[in-house]
Design a protein around this nucleic acid. Structure first.
Lengths: 350, 350
DNA sequence: CTGAAAGCGCTAACAC
DNA sequence: GTGTTAGCGCTTTCAG
């Protein structure tokens, strides 16, 4: 049972002094509200003397302009919506450190540009709810983190002219703007690295129906191809982002009884789950099986063994998403973007 | 260099059809705006027939009420500000998975209650900037994640009657409301566990000037006391939340040349850093040294060895923070709250 | 340079 | 039941 303590300030519920407004400042300064408005806005139609008097007064009284009213009048807005879809089944999406980091990166990018960030979570199966903050005029546009398999719903949003930028993969017939890592290149990087380490039987863990994961797998296949190694469909193991997707995939792989000497996991989390499973089964990583992850979440360097992984450009991602969204909101077209990824070699692949 | 692709829809910057407003619906329905307003608000002063006609029209035209205008008129607001202070030096705070998880938990709790979440990051050394969204009328109150050493600034905010709830420790002479884990109890839990495992020389890693960390250390000392073991100040090693705070602390501890058989780290991240450092030095965990972390971030069960740690009640935390804030905004006093913590025993302590 | 007046898109008395 | 009217707190013509 939680312990509570009485509040320190017994009179907290008292004198709710009315919030100051422009008219108050105007009266006190002996000018009209127009003048106050101009002074505060830094208009140059105001005498230096009046301006400083008003400013001084406003500051000393801690007056702050009411942004809601200002927005209404100016028909503008400096708020961007960030929506994180969640799987209605597990509701667990914000648990993936990668998404969380993306939130952080967006927060930074938006702050940098003087925008506020309105965060909402929506049921991934009802994605048009993602547009609500825009439809109700609260934000000028939406950044959606995670495309999942909702290509069509996203297209509908774009067709409705909702300014929206999606973190994810570029798909054919896409009406909306995406910003994402170059997943094919990332997958190829991982594949080439494993091949260079002498691995030939590379299993892939992940749900290739998700565009980004599909691309990573395609990249792997491409690398195999170039090395003249055949891709064995038996080595493709579906795995979800759920906490122990990695472990389950390992069990499945073993159950198939197929030879393998490496795993390329669709995310770091899966890679970690897989490595733990291998360890419990007495299979040495990287000795017996090399493992590459994807994302380079902060903890992958702390993992044991430190995880070789494909790094997603999180810092750039936030800035790029915001930049594209601003283009869109200003009526300009925003081309989809693929950010470069790079391989971080650590100990899980020798 | 990022690759770009031309936009799919060349005419994206065209016909910016004006956003529908209530007057439009009114005209189309042949009624006054008041009637539309009432219908949409579900007022019972409206004939069933009119109501459904208006509702139908609004839906088919995808009309959405402008929340900004509504808020202005109603002088209300369903938005809560969540601010995450960052250390201006490292700017790295959002990297701690614990804070990120808290954000997720808050998002859930707010969504549940029909509130929007406006997230902002502020320089921890200028905490009164945290009140900006409130001062400008954008939010009805603020949840601040992370108290750090800014007790005084927080008191000032509370004195200004900014409705604010802080995740952190309860301190003497505190004017603001805190919700936090019971850090003393948590520390005691960790200490008792290590003692029960036969450890006597327990080092503590963390900056005890931070209230929460200080309380965890106090809890440890309390447990030692009760067991009749003396707390050795030599075993108290300052360590930051920086990525490799744990490693640095290990080095410092070793440099002191003092005997130790266990470490209680102020956070899981530190514990992980420390374990990696021990491993590199050939010191077995938990054989040679047992390690307990704090937070129970999602990855601690994936770590090797899986981390014994004190679990913070993240899910409850979000709900509790929101509940307290709502009390405050409704003019009622909100007592500070300490949520129970529990020890999760895994392999890092045998 | 400054003020009066007319709204931004909506709601809520107050009439009818 | 429904319409009229008067604003919410601010900005911006338009006069002076």
């Amino acid at each position: 049972m939680p312990k509570t303590t009485p509040p320190p300030d017994a009179d907290s519920g008292s004198a709710q002094q009315r919030r100051l407004q422009m008219a108050d400042i105007a009266r006190l300064a002996g000018v009209s509200t127009s003048t106050v408005s101009r002074a505060l806005a830094g208009s140059k139609l105001i005498s230096e003397e009046t301006r400083s008097r008003v400013l001084e007064l406003a500051r000393s009284l801690k007056y702050n302009i009411n942004i809601g009213a200002q927005n209404l009048r100016r028909k503008q807005n400096r708020t961007v919506g960030v929506v994180v879809p969640y799987d209605p089944a597990t509701r667990q999406h914000l648990s993936d450190p990668f998404f969380l980091s993306m939130l952080g990166s967006l927060a930074d990018a938006l702050t940098e540009q003087g925008f506020d960030m309105l965060v909402s979570r929506v049921d991934a199966s009802e994605l048009d709810a993602a547009a609500a903050p825009f439809d109700t005029g609260r934000v000028i546009g939406i950044v959606l983190i995670g495309q999942w398999r909702h290509h069509d719903q996203l297209n509908q949003l774009a067709a409705r002219h909702v300014p929206i930028v999606v973190w994810g993969a570029q798909l054919p017939q896409q009406l909306y703007c995406t910003v994402g890592g170059d997943n094919v290149a990332g997958g190829a990087l991982a594949g080439a690295h494993l091949l260079a380490r002498g691995r030939r039987r590379i299993a892939f863990f992940g749900d290739i129906n998700l565009p980004e994961i599909g691309h990573r797998y395609a990249g792997l296949c491409q690398a195999l191809n170039e090395a003249g190694v055949a891709a064995d469909p038996q080595l493709l193991v579906p795995a979800g982002f759920v906490p122990d997707g990695g472990r389950l995939a390992v069990e499945e792989l073993l159950a198939r009884g197929v030879a393998f000497d490496a795993v390329f996991a669709g995310s770091d989390l899966m890679a970690m789950g897989a490595i733990n499973a291998f360890r419990q089964l007495g299979l040495d990583v990287p000795g017996r099986v090399a493992v590459v992850g994807y994302d380079d979440i902060p903890l992958s360097s702390y993992f044991h063994p430190p995880l070789t992984t494909v790094q997603q450009p999180i810092q750039d991602a936030g800035r790029a998403l915001v930049a594209s969204l601003l283009e869109l909101t200003e009526g300009r077209p925003a081309p989809s973007l693929q950010l470069p990824t790079r391989l971080i070699v650590r100990d899980s692949t020798v």
